[in-house]
Each structure stands twice: as structure tokens, then as C-alpha cells.
Amino acid sequence: MPVPWEALIPFGLLTAMFGAAGTLANVSMRAQNQGKPPRYSVDNWDAMMMSRDKELTGHKRGQLATPVAPATFASSIKL
């Protein structure tokens, strides 16, 4: 019995569409997180630290490992 090759057309379409959707979602997530995987289970402490990161680096995922903060940071802390 011959293989019904017409069935492979929707199969290929489904594979391509799921693949495109997943790839686009991944690219979009990483573009919003400076190329890093996104954070999950963000609690109050993490959110607070991320807003502090944003004040230090300008982006919530930006990271900096200099011991002393720039002088503008001391006056930019919101109380």
C-alpha cells in the first residue's frame, strides 16, 4: 500500500508554524532581557533588586561589578 504523501503537507506546515511561533517568542523574550533567558518567579525582593539594577545600569537586567557606584547613584536612590 502506497504512503499517502498528501498527509505530509499539513504535517510539514504544523511543524513549521509551531517552530516559527516558538522561535519568535524566544527571540522576543531574549531581546527584552539583553540576550539572557528571562527571570521567573520574581518575588518582592527580586523586583526591588531589579529596580535597583535599573537605577545603576539603565536596564532591569543590566549587571555591573564595580565596587563603588557612580556618584549620581547616591542621589538617585528613591526613599
Partner: peptide, 10 residues
């Protein structure tokens, strides 16, 4: 001075 480390290094 303020500590300049962000969350991950801290």
C-alpha cells in the same frame, strides 16, 4: 560611597 554591585554579583 555606595556599593556599585548589581543583584547578581551581590
Amino acid at each position: 560611597e555606595e556599593v556599585g554591585l548589581t543583584s547578581a554579583p551581590l
